[in-house]
Structure formats: C-alpha cells, structure tokens
Simulated assay, not measured.
Amino acid sequence: MSATILVVEDERKIARLLQIELESEGYQVQVAFDGLTGWNSYREQVVDLILLDVMMPVMSGIELLRRIRSEDEQTPVILLTAKGAVEDKVSGLDLGATDYVTKPFEIEELLARVRAALRNSRKATVQASPGEWLTIADLRLNPATREVYRDERGIQLTQREFDLLAYLMRNQRLVLHREQLLTEVWGFDYAGDTNVVDVYIRYVRKKVDEGFGQELIHTVRGIGYVLRESV
C-alpha cells in the first residue's frame, strides 16, 4: 500500500507542485492551505508523513507541529523553511521535526528526504519483543515500547533522537563514522551534510549524559562517535 502524505502549504503553486511530484512517485497526497485545516486533516485521517510549511496563516507550522507532537511522536514531519530562518529550524527540531528542507528546494532532494523519513519510520514500527531491552551502564532502551531510562529516570526523545541512540546502543563500544550514522539513521539517500549528525549527537548527549555520573557518548576526533562506559 502506498504511503499517504499530508502537505500543509499556503502557497498554492508550491502545494500543487508538491502534490503532482509526490503523486507521480506513487504516494497518496492530501493538501491543506493553512495550519488549522492541516490540523483538522491530520486528526481526520491516518497519514504516514507530513510536509509542513512554517509560515502560514491561521496557525503557524511550528504551532501545528507542537500540537501533533503532543499526541504523536512517531509520524515523520519534514519542515519547509525559508532560507536563513535558523530560529524556525531550531524550534522545529527541538519540537520533534524529523527533518527540514530550505526553500527554494530541489524536488529531487525533497523526494530523497521523504523516502528516507518513511523508511526510517517503517524501521521504527517493525515489531520487537516488548521484553527486549538494550542496556549499557545505567542506560536502558526498549526498541518496541520506545522507552528510555537513565538511572531509572525516564527520558523523552524525539523519533530521530531515539533512532540515533538505539543505533549507538546496538553498536556499543564500536567507533561509528559520521557517514555510517548518516546512512543507517537518516537513510542512504539522505541529501544533507554530515553536520546533522553532530547536531543530533549534541541533543542526545544533553538528555542522556548531562547530570549523570558518567558520560556514555564519546567523540572520536576526526572519525565519529562511540557509546561506551568511561575507562
């Protein structure tokens, strides 16, 4: 069954272009021209991915993202942001956006990011035994229930942060190159640069390392990262 994508974009020409290109790739596409209509469309149907413009009338994309993430941490959301809108990008990532594309964008890049987001979302929903826990020191992660605990304290992660930490934990004590993390967590056809890995490592570190007795995520200068207990 083809994936259903919700496009929330107030510029009708862009929305129509996205609809045509996505449908030509075999996706089912729903379109909303403002944030409130987008929210209602999201509540009325099951969607597999959302393309969300940030600057919109009635309800901004950031507010819509906030509402979605208040009840749904899984559905991939790719933000469409204005060039140079760093604050919007940071706010979106902090609220749990999966990715972002800067306008004007190349349609091939956007389609690649859509494929990567859908693929990683499907990986995350593959059934695993609820009893399976990945552990290192006092950090525990359950791939099935998507629970994370450090020193028995619950930790809330976005979908991308969870996927990154899960990959690190499955490969603990192995030095992982940035390119390897990008391929395995973001997808082989991800069109961004490797700096996004550093950004998300920083996010995960802040949640799982800061304030605890020992650091578990270590930088290997010039190569990448490794998850291991301090020696």
Rank of each mutant, 00 (worst) to 15 (best):
V126K: 11
I107R: 07
A124Q: 12
L111F: 08
A124Y: 06
I136H: 01
L141H: 02
N120I: 15
L118Y: 08
A116C: 15
K123D: 15
I107N: 08
T135G: 10
W133M: 06
K123E: 15
A144W: 00
F162P: 05
A137N: 11
L134D: 02
T135A: 13
Q159T: 14
L168K: 05
Q156Y: 08
N142C: 00
S121A: 12
R160C: 05
V114Q: 08
R113H: 09
A112L: 10
L110G: 06
D163P: 06
L118M: 07
Y149L: 04
L165I: 03
A124C: 10
G131V: 13
E161N: 07
D151V: 03
L110M: 06
R160K: 13
L111I: 12
Q127I: 15
A144S: 13
A166I: 09
E108P: 09
Q156N: 10
Y149A: 00
S129G: 11
A116Y: 09
R122E: 14
R160Y: 04
E106P: 07
R146K: 11
E161F: 03
W133A: 05
Y149R: 03
N120H: 13
D151P: 02
L165Q: 01
R119Y: 14
I136L: 03
A117V: 13
T145N: 03
S121G: 11
V114N: 07
P130A: 10
L165R: 05
G154Y: 08
P143F: 01
A137L: 04
A124G: 11
G131M: 06
A144M: 04
G154V: 05
R146M: 01
A144T: 08
N142I: 00
F162H: 05
R153W: 02
R115L: 08
L111Y: 14
E108L: 14
E106N: 13
V114W: 02
E147Q: 04
D151G: 03
T125L: 08
E161M: 05
N120E: 15
R153Y: 03
P130M: 11
V114Y: 08
L168Y: 00
A117I: 11
D151L: 02
M169K: 04
T145H: 01
A124H: 07
A116N: 15
L157S: 00
E161T: 05
E132F: 12
A144Q: 10
N120A: 15
L134N: 06
D138H: 09
P143V: 00
S121Y: 10
R115Y: 12
D138V: 05
L141W: 02
L141N: 03
A166L: 12
A128H: 12
A128Y: 04
Q159I: 12
Q127T: 15
L164R: 07
R115Q: 09
Y149N: 05
Y167E: 11
R153V: 10
V126N: 11
M169N: 01
E109M: 04
P130V: 08
I155E: 01
Y149V: 00
P130H: 07
F162L: 05
L111S: 11
Y149K: 00
E132N: 14
L141C: 06
K123A: 13
V148C: 01
L164C: 08
Q127V: 15
L134V: 05
P130G: 10
E132G: 11
Q127S: 15
G131I: 05
G154E: 09
Y167H: 13
L110I: 12
S121H: 13
N120K: 15
I107T: 08
A128S: 11
V126Q: 13
L134R: 01
I107C: 06
L165N: 00
M169G: 04
S129R: 12
G131Q: 10
G131F: 04
A128M: 10
